[in-house]
Design a protein around this nucleic acid. Structure first.
Lengths: 344, 344
DNA sequence: TGAAAATACGAAAACGATTAAGTGTATGTG
DNA sequence: CACATACACTTAATCGTTTTCGTATTTTCA
């Protein structure tokens, strides 16, 4: 950064017009003649001019930069399969619209900045939040600020949120499992402090109730998201039950692989002896045989919609309607849930 | 962003001192009295002051922002397991040092900005490049610019680069396989236009030669990185050979799972009937049984080192020595390579 | 032809921060 | 007591843009 940048002033000198004119020419204002515009642009090109984002931001209060807050409990936002896909899609859409993406973090080095402080400091035009502990007061502070915000997988009063359709997802999954003949269905669910878990669990109960099936309490166990080890242990307990389930649902595909391990350890076959279903539809789940029965999240649409809505809100702070958008996943039948005789 | 920010001027008024004094107080300059500093800080806090990154950047030519260029052939830098881990580690280290992370992209909306233009526009203090087509002229332009650069997994004359140790990785892996009794070892390698592939392939040949084993040409086949399907097909061909290998290496764990599929389809057991080895050590490879025999990349160290070196270079543009740093992975023995009788 | 309107450009302030140089006061020194 | 030094500030310029308000020139049209 040692080299001085070429600025409007340099172009102005080279062109013999004022700085104001150069600025307007480059921004295609209507009060500059065609000839001048062309000349200015040409010289700008020759001189290797690049606008200075900082100066622009300072003057216009617009950074064309979106802050991203992605922190999960394991502190691995980026390596989280589901969220990295969502983020990737978000990023693509945002870039198409001329926005850059910068991560928000609670800066420890400076004045121990809060998320909000950081966002203000960087002057983000808007912020997308996902995969965080929504109970964190810092997150709350950010959400309640007057920076345009979109949240993913958690809804807030008076904010735009994009949610994957967990109700329908679980319903589709359970219904399919039911149709395959299963009546003894267990659910290793993620921990319940999140909206996601709550809706899935509710949907699980509702769907089975509608189907006229009752679920023994011991079929419902908690295990952290993305934890193969805990899922493995939970699975063994389920298999040891006097009346074990014929099919087990997991919080996500990762955890479901833990289930695979437990089942194989018992020398049981999937899906002949026991059926397993995941959630999310991560790449490997759809590649490793037996192909996982799962709900494939539409991460692409989630990310894209989040970006579109946020940008909409940025450009139109008053006119954009606050809504909660739900995006459906699709059932991937796979091979890990098998058809069984309905004994009943 | 409608609200006007509280600026130094506001503090200055409230404190009854000049703006300069406020600035210096906040930056802990030595020519401000202790009492004034405290008073200024207190009032700044009360007023909810946040520095303005744009103004600071404009004045100081420092953004405390690092640009990240991550684009792979599938255009999915973020969802790429290995790189997302490296990036995550890079990000953590950079944040610790007070830097933010912003993605570089070839902006289509503005003047079809090149990577370099984008970097200049945003005034990145430095740039990290990985996972890209290093033959792309735009990448070349960026690397040759006078912006501090660190590259990952590709080395350039006169630039700092961080590379995972592919030579040693393959050597360790092959040696282990040899020690397990295997003499007929095939290698489904990634495509050869990258430095990574070249060193691995070279190391494969060298190691086996040192061990006194010769490799039939038909044991060496190319297949894209992270492509289970192609690896699956390649594996079937290898298994159909008149004298099939007893162990197959893959470009990465993803591809190795493709091998798993092919092997299982033939009703062969891993590792009793055939052995398989991956590369990278992705999470699932170390969780799904049979545990994959693989080289676990030290993504944490790679990312951390890249960040440390880049920041070093930023703070010390002349004094930092240009070097190529190689970071070793570790052999994960796993269960997918079995011991066999050496028939010879 | 003369006034109004359109056209093309410029001057200057402003955004929020940093910093070199200058100013006035208190303290120390011989 | 005179002078140098240290201390604690302030003044003012500056970073690169944008934008409001003028102004000078040309065009339009009754």
């Amino acid at each position: 950064m040692a080299k001085r940048m070429v600025s409007l002033k340099d172009i102005s000198k080279a062109c013999g017009v004022s700085v104001a004119t150069v600025s307007k020419a480059l921004n295609d204002h209507s009060d500059i003649s065609k000839e001048t515009k062309e000349r200015v642009r040409e010289i700008a090109e020759q001189l290797g001019y690049h606008p200075n984002a900082a100066a622009q931001a300072l003057k216009t209060n617009r950074t064309n930069n979106i802050g991203v807050l992605f922190v999960d409990e394991a502190n691995s936002g980026l390596t989280h399969d589901y969220f990295s896909h969502v983020l990737d899609s978000f990023k693509k859409k945002a870039e198409q619209e001329g926005f850059d993406i910068t991560f928000i973090n609670g800066d420890k080095t400076r004045n121990n900045m809060s998320y909000l402080s950081h966002a203000i400091y960087r002057g983000f035009d808007g912020v997308v939040i996902a995969c965080v502990d929504f109970l964190d007061p810092q997150v709350d502070e950010l959400i309640k600020s007057n920076i345009p915000v979109v949240t993913i997988d958690h809804s807030f009063f008076n904010r735009i949120s994009i949610m994957s359709d967990n109700i329908k997802g679980i319903k589709d999954l359970v219904t399919y499992i039911y149709e395959m003949g299963h009546r003894k269905i267990a659910y290793v669910h993620g921990y319940e402090n999140t909206a996601v878990t709550q809706s899935r669990l509710a949907s699980f109960y509702n769907t089975l109730q509608e189907l006229g099936i009752n679920v023994p309490d011991e079929y419902i166990v908690g295990s952290p998201y993305r934890d193969t080890e805990k899922a493995y242990e939970a699975t063994k307990k389920l298999l040891d039950l006097p009346d074990p389930p014929t099919c087990i649902l997991y919080p996500d595909d990762f955890a479901a692989f833990g289930g695979f391990n437990a089942v194989r350890e018992r020398n049981l076959r999937i899906p002949e002896d026991i059926s397993i279903a995941g959630y999310d539809g991560i790449e490997l789940a759809r590649r490793i045989s037996p192909l996982m029965t799962t709900i494939v999240q539409n991460t692409d649409k989630i990310g894209r919609t989040a970006a579109a809505k946020l940008i909409d809100l940025i450009n139109n702070p008053k006119g954009t309607l606050i809504e909660q958008i739900v995006i459906e996943g699709t059932l991937e039948k796979g091979e890990s849930v098998g058809r069984i005789e309905t004994v009943k």
